[in-house]
Design a protein around this nucleic acid. Structure first.
Length: 445
RNA sequence: GGACCCAUAGCCAAGAGGAAAGGCAAGGGACUGCAACUCCCUGAUCGUUGGUUCGAAUCCGACUGGGUCCUCCA
């Protein structure tokens, strides 16, 4: 298994710290609003990573946080006259609904910043004690000069960063690149700490939760490429300071999704919300997976629409072959896949996934399987092969999170199918059309 | 201003030194009671331009055109 590691900027062979186990953490949402389709990309992609590891036999400990302490949450709470908890609870629920809608698993570990305040304060204290952080008027800053390799992840030099013209001036900082660990404030939700009354900066939460939950360097840390700097860079710096390791062995970053060439962001106002998706969410998921995760995607309604067709085609054929097998009472979920064409497809699929999760090529294998299904469905006689290809197809779709429901036929369904078949045989096309409509309504034809 | 990435058929998109995957759309044909579905067939010297090489979409340079980060953003 090869994975591109942003930290070393190279494709690496994945070797887990503990055999048969994968520990992974993905930066989660700041819960002050709904998520847009760009936010959906890591939600879908890292779910596929998890599913693949699980499919090939790994036990995956998957953690993704909720940032529920943030300026925007406080502002929203103030403007709505409710508590921060009200705001975050509302958008956590909305987020999980969207995740489910996108076909990603929701049964992962979901720590919240507000539940980790003692650990966060202790982590900051440790950085102060070890001389990596300093306190000025109750604010705590991390001193990036203390970390020689600062900038390695995002491939930046401190000098280049300093020459950027937009770094804000802050007299309290020793180095303009130093970042805030703790901010003294009584506005909004705040906590007591040895430094002052205030709240933590946003870079410490992830690294604290990772340390608390895993107690060691993890296998994979994921997130969007746009938070590689400074967020992930800062996580590494803090982890090196406190724990002496880089927080994660492999750093994975998904590319951006841009709206018709333009950057989509809440502050720009050009946003498509996941909750408002106008197409089948599975078609959207397919659209996301049809481009390699590290490449940017230019979203447009047109490019999305072609996947609507593709998804419908796939769904119809998979349901069709299942119905045919079940109707003829020859469906064998545990059949053994021996057909060389079918094993070749699974091999191609696996090879693609093993090559840095190349889901675009994995979908090509799905299309090959679809072609075989459609060919078999013209004859509807080779039940053995039909069972094998359906099993292979379901395996691939399960990993991609594009599962298609295959509900066993009821006696009534079977009766309907039998009567339709009989009507056509008897050339009673009027009755046949009525029955066909009924079957179509039930998605059985 | 600084750092970096990308450019493959009408559209989307793999491939990363040795014969241009796949999908959508389009056209032709087959199948069909009708329709849909489905099946078969049809398409690219890989932005332009120099170079390196026996050989370049793949490596290097220049140019053009997009985009990202340096600032809250996934």
């Amino acid at each position: 298994m090869k994975i591109f590691n942003s930290y070393t900027n190279s494709l690496e062979t994945f070797v887990p710290y503990h055999e048969g186990q994968v520990s992974m953490y993905v930066c989660g949402p700041t819960v002050y609003n709904y998520i847009h389709i760009g936010n959906a990309r890591p939600v879908v992609f890292f779910d596929v990573v998890r599913r693949y590891f699980e499919a090939i036999g790994f036990t995956v400990k998957f953690v993704s946080n909720f940032t529920d302490v943030d300026d925007k949450i406080i502002q929203k709470a103030i403007s709505e006259g409710v508590s921060e908890l009200d705001v975050s609870n509302r958008f956590i629920a909305a987020f999980l609904a969207d995740v489910e809608k996108l076909g990603s698993k929701t049964d992962y570990i979901k720590p919240r910043v507000t539940e980790y305040m003692p650990q966060i304060i202790a982590y900051i204290q440790e950085m102060v004690n070890k001389g990596f952080a300093y306190i000025v008027d109750g604010d705590v800053f991390f001193s990036v000069d203390k970390i020689p390799e600062y900038g390695k992840l995002s491939n930046r030099k401190l000098d280049d960063l300093l020459s950027g013209s937009r770094i804000e001036v802050n007299d309290k900082k020793k180095n303009p690149l130093d970042f805030v660990l703790w901010k003294r404030t009584v506005e909004g939700v705040h906590w007591n700490s040895p430094f002052s009354v205030g709240r933590p900066g946003w870079h410490t939460e992830c690294v604290t939760m990772i340390d608390d939950i895993f107690s060691e360097e993890i296998d994979i840390h994921g997130g969007g490429i746009d938070i590689m700097f400074p967020h992930h860079e800062n996580e590494i710096a803090q982890s090196l300071a406190c724990k002496g390791h880089r927080c994660a062995n492999i750093w994975m970053h998904n590319g951006r999704l841009n709206l018709e060439g333009e950057k989509m962001s809440k502050s720009e106002g050009n946003v498509v919300w996941v909750k408002d998706l106008s197409v089948d969410p599975m078609a959207f998921r397919m659209f996301l997976l049809s481009t390699h995760y590290r490449a940017p995607i230019a979203y447009s309604q047109d490019s999305l629409d072609s996947y609507v067709n593709e998804w419908q085609r796939l769904k119809k054929s998979v349901i069709g072959i299942f119905v045919t097998l079940d109707y003829n009472s020859v469906y064998h979920i545990n059949c053994e896949i021996t057909d060389p064409d079918i094993t070749a497809i699974i091999s191609a699929f696996t090879e693609s996934m093993e090559n840095d999760f190349n889901t675009a090529n994995a979908l090509t294998a799905v299309n090959q399987a679809l072609k075989i299904i459609n060919n078999l469905m013209r004859q509807k006689t080779d039940y053995e092969r039909m069972n094998q290809i359906l099993k292979a197809m379901n395996y691939m779709l399960m990993i991609l999170g594009l599962s298609i429901d295959q509900v066993p036929l009821t006696a009534n369904d079977k009766d309907l199918l039998a009567r339709w078949e009989a009507a056509r045989k008897a050339k009673d096309f009027q009755l046949a059309d009525v029955l066909r409509n009924e079957l179509a309504h039930k998605n059985l034809v």
